[in-house]
Design a protein around this nucleic acid. Structure first.
Lengths: 265, 265
DNA sequence: TTATCGTATATGTACGTACTAATTGATTTC
DNA sequence: GAAATCAATTAGTACGTACATATACGATAA
């Protein structure tokens, strides 16, 4: 054992470069390394377009094995933050902010967190409902199950122009998780995870075009009949129990759904 | 060295279970294992919902290390074919064919291959064009660059109802790759890769809603003004050279864009 | 009968080594 | 000067080990 954690524990005063110091056994090491690298990138410590230190250098500097560094780099490559080429090195990539329309539809669970953190969901209405008919079908449950129904508008964190209309259905068993929330600054399912201690393992998301409804259009500042995207999400806990169902309506002229597909190797 | 490749080379007649035998050093081992597992899944050899043999069993049966098996399983987990739980095992997951509307928008490079293989792109029109104005902007190149412009309709492999209108722009330097193609049964960028020997490393894709144009509507069998999704794709070779730009228009009532977001751990 | 406590088993994490292969840049050669 | 060659560098692949941790199940005790 020669990594920085044990050094920390044995009271060694040797300082790891750039002030990094591993946590005390919360997250796995490769995740800590990934977060560390990510923050140093957004710090500008590793410039976009430049090459990262080599895997061996990083491993030595952070006091972990090269495998662990590779695992961390692998995560960031999946997210598009890094790209690697054999014989060359690992390059810091720009986060594509493709032409004007910002990315506000998530491609991963962690991105949902980030988006939610940058926005505010102002809850305007809430009631308990019993799933019947189309709703029961949408929720994939038998009629009669109780859900907390919440509606509201999502704003950028700085309270600019509203950008989406949101409706959320939460399983009554976990609805207490949001009973005191009037303005959500985190993802709703984050509240649920915190409340139950259980992790949302899977989120199924689908995107469809619709024509904007008259009164929803008014709430998000556009005209009825305008083109929009509706994003449906189903949140499943362990054993594929549906804990939350939500949909979101985004004006099409403001938002585009962008993805980057990469070669595996 | 005790894996099945070396056994093969030394002429050992020992037969690996289920007729698997590694190739002679073309693809990396973990990819071969991944493909092997995938084909056995679609064979029904590993039933959906059941647990795979343990990593150690697979490693021994295939004559590779557990690490290699894990790498292969990791790929298939990313694709959603498998899911693993600590202390339990690795489960074969169903490919979600969510309620009626088939998935015809790719989420990964390999999925583009698969979709293209299941469909036919019937080319109806082709000409050389010089990028000007909006096209130059869409293509992100300076005006005057030459492209081969191809348009046509994409059908299911069995030649049922048309399902999308397609337009493709190919960099003139590689346009020869498709000069003899009138019906494409593979992805266009696959022809380009074959022609140049260079791999398309990155594909950027964005999805937006539009109202269906009158004459395009006619070609895919729906009405003008109907809701549709337009999928733009930019194909980049090494050094982010744009080699191909394409867009595709899909009737909204037939197709939904579905994604599954999973927890990292 | 119910609750609790091991124990076995599975994946997850982390380390190590060794070698392969793509790329770059300097050097040599024509 | 241009082309071929070689050496150094860097990520990729593949193997090994060991231990951590979540889960299921059976044995035991209340």
């Amino acid at each position: 054992m020669s990594n920085a954690i044990s050094q920390e524990m044995t009271g060694s005063t040797q300082e790891i470069k750039n002030g990094w110091k591993p946590e005390i056994a919360t997250a796995p090491l490769y995740l800590q390394v990934a977060h560390h690298l990510e923050s140093r990138i957004s710090n500008g410590d590793f410039a976009v377009g430049s090459l990262l230190p080599t895997e061996n250098e990083l491993a030595e500097a952070l006091g972990v094995s090269r495998q662990t560094v590779r695992q961390a780099i692998g995560l960031l490559r999946n997210k598009g933050r890094l790209s690697a080429r054999k014989g060359v090195g690992t390059r810091v990539e720009a986060i594509e902010a493709s032409s004007g329309s910002t990315r506000f539809i998530a491609h991963s669970r962690s991105e949902l967190f980030e988006i939610a953190a940058e926005t505010e969901f102002v809850i305007g209405f809430r009631e308990m409902v019993s799933a019947q008919g189309k709703l029961a079908v949408d929720l994939g449950c038998r009629p009669g199950r109780k859900f907390l129904h919440i509606t509201g508008v999502r704003y950028p964190a700085n309270r600019g122009k509203a950008f989406s209309w949101n409706e959320v259905y939460i399983d009554s068993r976990v609805a207490a998780a949001v009973k005191d929330v009037t303005v959500a600054r985190r993802a709703i399912f984050h509240y649920i995870e915190e409340f139950t201690g259980e992790k949302i393992h899977e989120i199924q998301q689908d995107v469809r075009p619709i024509a904007m409804d008259e009164d929803i259009a008014e709430k998000v500042g556009c005209k009825g009949g305008d083109l929009a995207l509706i994003v449906n999400r189903r949140y499943y806990g362990s054993g594929r129990r549906l804990l939350e169902y939500a949909f979101q309506i985004l004006p099409a002229d403001r938002f585009t759904y962008t993805t980057t597909l990469r070669a595996e190797t």
